[in-house]
Design a protein around this nucleic acid. Structure first.
Length: 486
DNA sequence: CTATGTAAACAAC
DNA sequence: GTTGTTTACATAG
């Protein structure tokens, strides 16, 4: 498999660059004249590539002969698995969509019926560039690409609309024609090339990010980051450069909101920052689940407090909490408890619940084997059993490489690795719908927002001997079930 | 009621 | 002052 380059957008922050970019790349990036990318695989100008080592501890050297002026095509088969395979596995379904990730929010590019808020923000809804196969793959392999719904991988967000309807949608036709045209070599055929470009392409104004929730934006930021990790400061910077949240006000509210979302949304986890880092804070990282399935609303991670709106006085209560009720030590304790519970087994993945049950003695504590310090509450409240499926955590954290954590998931030499550090998780049955109705069912079906366990042979969970039935847990807002791990 | 944004209390550094 | 956690409240839909 040939890879011309890996394009991603990096925040301009120096600290970020220093942390994530190899010197050579930084130099290339700094080149006054943007590199000329092959016409076949156009890439964002001024941006460059960073191929993580297979072990995730660093970055590969640029291919021999590479220069900013004459980028070369080189082979890159870190795990003997073609990228098309990766994509194929990771994005098994044909999803039409516009190139605008926010279409759902704006109602652009889709029928109004498709604008309903998804249960989660699927990865590709924000994977604007990083996982776009056209930018990574050597398309000429038509046999492969024919299997691969590459064009549809662009931003397949949760789509409740039957596929039959997709075909009637303009966007779909557009994609079809694009597909028919063969190589998407023409610039106009190429999907959005960079995050900032996307904004322009989609709406042509800065209003784009205004309506995108923080969780999504953070997700995007992290998706663009090597190893899907960033420190808070860089996330701030990313927001400054890519959103209008920061520009809107001079207040610090947006930063608070970012922190709030990082803390409260289970899609984000923090990993320790070993080494000589700024020692200021943690690295924030996307969970594997988030990478796979996207962000879910932060709301669902919030504690289930009774809605007191009915009898509210109209202004904040003078002393709405006792000391330690929130934040601080008590918070940390509870977080730790949750973490412990989580690590205690079934926190991680409902589908990874050991046969003996979540509290099975033999169930190894992921927390003890060096995993992300994931305090992000994939949970509801302290009384919650704190479930989450942070499989990425289990064995997914490489303490020695904060900038490129190894996502050994599933642990295998065939672990698919996308050049920019994305480890594509795949065991999704091609027949399996990407998204599900979130309506709690009165039947035995799993929580609706939970992807159904693939029933096909070869399902990794099955291989692990774990049950494929997701236990019911109670969701914050739905007493009928609890979301397992998100 | 849900999703989201925001303010703020607090603790630890 | 920054970072992270958590609660509370406001608001739009």
């Amino acid at each position: 498999m040939k890879v011309t380059s890996v394009a991603t957008t990096f925040p301009e922050s120096d600290t970020y660059r220093e942390r994530h970019l190899p010197a050579a790349i930084m130099r290339a990036d700094d080149a006054a004249t943007p590199p000329l990318w092959t016409t076949q695989y156009p890439f964002p100008l001024g941006r460059t590539l960073a191929l993580p080592n297979a072990d995730g501890t660093g970055y590969q050297d640029l291919p021999p002969g590479y220069t900013p002026e004459s980028p070369t095509t080189f082979d890159y088969t870190p795990h003997g698995l073609s990228f098309s395979d990766n994509y194929n596995l990771a994005f098994p379904t044909l999803i039409p969509s516009s190139s605008c990730p926010r279409a759902y929010a704006h109602g652009l590019g889709f029928p109004s019926s498709m604008s309903s808020m998804p249960n989660s923000y699927p990865p590709s809804a924000y994977l604007l560039e990083p996982q776009r196969p056209q930018e990574v793959l050597d398309i000429p392999n038509m046999s492969t690409s024919s299997q691969l719904p590459q064009m549809q991988l662009n931003d397949d967000f949760e789509d409740p609309v039957p596929r039959a309807e997709w075909k009637e949608h303009p966007t779909y036709s557009q994609m079809q024609s694009s597909e028919d045209s063969g190589l998407r070599s023409a610039p106009q055929d190429a999907p959005s090339m960079g995050h900032s470009d996307v904004k322009i392409e989609c709406l042509g104004d800065d209003a784009v990010d205004k309506e995108q929730p923080y969780a999504q934006l953070i997700y995007r930021a992290l998706m663009e980051a090597p190893g899907h990790t960033m420190i808070l400061r860089d996330i701030y910077n990313w927001f400054k450069e890519n959103t209008d949240k920061a520009a809107d006000k001079e207040t610090k509210g947006w930063q608070n909101s970012i922190r709030h979302n990082l803390s409260m949304n289970g899609a984000f986890e923090k990993v320790d920052q070993p080494g000589d880092e700024t020692k200021k804070g943690f690295l924030w990282k996307l969970t594997e689940e988030a990478i796979r399935e996207g962000v879910k609303s932060t709301t669902r991670y919030r504690s289930k407090q009774p809605n007191k709106r009915g009898h509210r006085s109209g202004h904040p209560q003078p002393q709405r909490q006792i000391s330690g009720a929130k934040g601080g030590q008590a918070s940390k304790r509870s977080a730790k408890l949750r973490r412990s519970n989580r690590m205690n087994g079934f926190y991680a993945n409902p589908r990874s619940v050991p046969p003996d049950g979540p509290y099975s003695p033999g169930y190894e504590s992921a927390f003890d084997i060096g995993i992300p310090l994931s305090t992000s509450p994939y949970y509801t409240s302290d009384s919650d059993s704190g479930q989450s499926i942070d499989l990425g955590g289990i064995g997914g954290y490489s303490p020695g490489s904060p900038t490129a954590p190894v996502h050994s998931y599933p642990a295998s030499s065939h672990e698919p690795l996308v050049p920019n550090g994305f480890h594509v998780i795949l065991p999704i049955d091609p027949q399996e719908p990407l998204f599900y109705d979130d309506t709690p069912s009165n039947t035995s079906s799993p929580p609706a927002d939970e992807p159904l366990t693939p029933s096909s042979v070869g399902d990794w969970e099955t291989e692990n001997g774990y049950p494929t039935v997701t236990p019911y847990i109670f969701d914050d807002y739905n007493p009928n079930y609890r979301e397992s791990l998100h």
